[in-house]
Design a protein around this nucleic acid. Structure first.
Length: 283
DNA sequence: CGCAGGCCCTGGTAGC
DNA sequence: TGCTACCAGGGCCTGC
């Protein structure tokens, strides 16, 4: 699933293959792809036509392609892909939008099986789209403030994993990297945020950054064909996962079988020995 | 206002 | 074999 490392890998690919090129035509093939663009798919295509893509940017799991003072926002949701290729290739299933360029070179296609992803136009959004103002800086940005994060965490009345997944508190972390960072920091997902000590928070942030950086270096995590880079290739960080998706397999640190809990209508993987369940946890 | 839960969506798979 | 139920889960929205 695309979390920060996967989105960053896509951003890098777009920067190398799309930045500096001028959009000749946009086809929106599925209305859900443009559902956040209130003026509709035709308007989205119209405002982008003739625009030249600037330096591709990212905050958390959001991407945006600056066009003049404005921007095209893209979110991959659960299964979104942005792939670049020969314009003559056949249209794959689940292609939701296509972008052709004036140079006649490789085109850009937005593919999204589960349609949780979307594209929208952000007027005046070249630097930071106003629609993303509620998204907190991600922990790899200079703008991320560790002290502020620790202070806000202390005020929360919830569990640490729920807080890690809250994009208004810290962005870019999804279910996979939340589980991996918590395992690395030896923290149980239900630990109360207001009960964490500052060293716990410092350690957790360090592990969040470490696991995100390692995953970026590996080109992201791919369990199946649902996440690919812009060239269609898979990342290989799934080989480095310690607990996520590994129920019953030995914890790489102590050998105890990894357990799976139901949480927030999804799964949480942890080591029952390295990550002791708190007596008074929150979730 | 903070927090928790529902909903959106599709394809693969487990189970009967 | 063919059906149903369930699973993956990010972010917006609603309601308590």
């Amino acid at each position: 699933m695309p979390e920060l490392p996967e989105v960053e890998t896509v951003r890098d690919g777009l920067q190398r293959h799309v930045s500096g090129r001028t959009i000749a035509d946009v086809q929106v093939l599925h209305p859900r792809a443009a559902r956040r663009h209130l003026a509709g798919p035709d308007d989205l295509a119209a405002v982008l036509r003739g625009s030249t893509v600037g330096v591709v940017r990212r905050r958390g799991k959001y991407l945006w392609l600056p066009v003049g003072h404005d921007a095209l926002i893209a979110h991959l949701g659960m299964s979104g892909q942005l792939v670049v290729g020969d314009p003559g290739r056949p249209l794959a299933p689940h292609v939701r939008a296509t972008f052709a360029f004036t140079d006649g070179g490789p085109d850009l296609r937005f593919v999204d099986q589960r349609t949780f992803g979307h594209l929208t136009f952000a007027p005046g959004g070249a630097v930071l789209p106003p629609a993303l103002a509620h998204i907190a800086p991600d922990p790899l940005e200079d703008a991320f403030d560790d002290e502020r994060f620790a202070a806000r965490l202390r005020l929360r009345k919830t569990g640490i994993k729920r807080a890690l997944l809250d994009q208004s508190l810290i962005s870019g972390v999804g279910n996979i990297y939340a589980d991996e960072a918590l395992w690395r920091a030896r923290l149980h997902w239900a630990r109360a945020t207001d009960g964490l000590r500052r060293p716990d928070v410092t350690r957790l942030l360090a592990e969040v950054r470490a696991v995100l950086a390692a995953a970026i270096a590996a080109g992201g995590t791919s369990f199946d064909s649902l996440y690919v880079q812009v060239n269609g290739q898979s990342g290989y960080f799934d080989r480095s996962l310690a607990v996520y998706g590994r129920e019953g397999e030995p914890c790489p640190r102590c050998g105890t079988p990894v357990r799976r809990d139901k949480f927030m209508n999804r799964s949480s993987f942890s080591c029952p020995r390295c990550q002791l369940r708190p007596r008074r946890g929150r979730w």
